[in-house]
């Protein structure tokens, strides 16, 4: 498969016609949209992704367009549809790209039960993945973006796709979602040209996305073995500190953070049990990214 490597005008034309077909990690995605800002941001964030053939199987057929009616003209909105089904209410049109990202998360989490799907960022170095499970706001995406800015491979900033058989993690690298203060932090910490335009007044506050490294997209076809589990917590003025977490407690916390644990039932429970048996787990409190990264680097 070849990288997309299309000019923005060609991307917009494909989005308006039969759909732009991309390979995003293990998933083939077809996206159709008539919205200019979706075309611009797809070109910016997904320009390095492999394009799939027009006749290839597609996992998710997604459309993002204006809903029907007069709202198209007055304070326009965008609506997400998946195989013709509209699971969410419309949002202001300036949130259309974020809506694509959130909607694709939903598509994966609700259909891809060949994996145990855990709400976590995942990065890798030297062939070992570190899983960062966490509640929204725990600071996992900021830490993930910082690690990626320092050369770590991005597997995902949102969900760990864990194989119940061998526990390997399938990469699904996508734009990293940043919220509120973390947007300015990452513009200062990393390459600010990789951070897209912020969108205000979303359900999560102000959001912006950071483009994933091209290397991470190239290596997205390589499953990675998990090495460590780290539960991050951003805490203002805290010195970076790693504290061991008991396996029993790690099991319960990962189960709570897994989207389809209950659907997998026994298999889900045994998968998390084996994962925490294999991977030492830690709590990480941090306020400074460099010192947090130093603690993590020291593990490998």
């Amino acid at each position: 498969m070849k990288p997309l490597d299309l000019k923005p005008g060609e991307i917009a034309r494909l989005l308006r016609s039969n759909g732009l077909r991309l390979q995003i990690g293990p998933f083939a995605v077809s996206l159709r949209s008539r919205l200019r800002r979706v075309a611009e941001q797809i070109a910016f964030f997904y320009g390095d992704y492999p394009r799939i053939e027009a006749d290839a199987f597609v996992d998710f057929h997604i459309q993002i367009n204006n809903p029907a009616g007069l709202r198209h003209w007055v304070r326009p909105q965008a609506i997400f549809s998946f195989d013709g089904f509209k699971p969410f209410k419309p949002l202001p049109e300036d949130q259309a790209f974020a809506m694509f990202e959130w909607g694709l998360n939903w598509c994966i989490a609700t259909t891809s039960h060949q994996f145990l799907i855990t709400h976590a960022a995942v990065v890798a170095k030297n062939g070992q993945a570190i899983i960062f499970p966490g509640e929204p706001g725990a600071g996992k995406s900021t830490l993930c973006a910082a690690l990626v800015s320092r050369g770590w491979q991005l597997l995902s900033d949102e969900m760990a796709l864990i194989d119940p058989g061998d526990l390997s993690i399938t990469p699904v690298p996508r734009p990293i979602g940043l919220k509120n203060e973390s947007i300015a932090i990452m513009k200062n910490y990393g390459d600010e040209t990789l951070v897209g335009p912020p969108v205000t007044d979303t359900i999560k506050g102000t959001v912006a996305h950071m483009r994933p490294p091209a290397d991470s997209i190239v290596h997205a076809d390589r499953d990675t073995r998990p090495g460590y589990i780290i539960f991050p917590t951003y805490s203002a003025a805290a010195d970076s500190q790693l504290d061991k977490v008991e396996k029993t407690r790690a099991l319960v916390r990962i189960a709570e953070q897994s989207f389809n644990y209950h659907i997998l039932g026994r298999e889900g429970f045994r998968t998390v049990e084996r994962l925490v048996s294999r991977c030492p787990a830690f709590d990480l409190r941090y306020s400074q990214l460099d010192s947090a990264i130093a603690e993590i680097d020291a593990l490998l």
Binding site: T248, L251, H262, F269, R270
Partner: peptide, 23 residues
């Protein structure tokens, strides 16, 4: 279903019927 480790006091219990996981 049970998950236990020799060096830890607590146990994790999973009930397949209810989906309940308890420490």
């Amino acid at each position: 279903l049970w998950a236990e480790w020799e060096d830890e006091e607590a146990s994790v219990f999973f009930h397949r019927g209810s989906g309940e996981t308890l420490l």
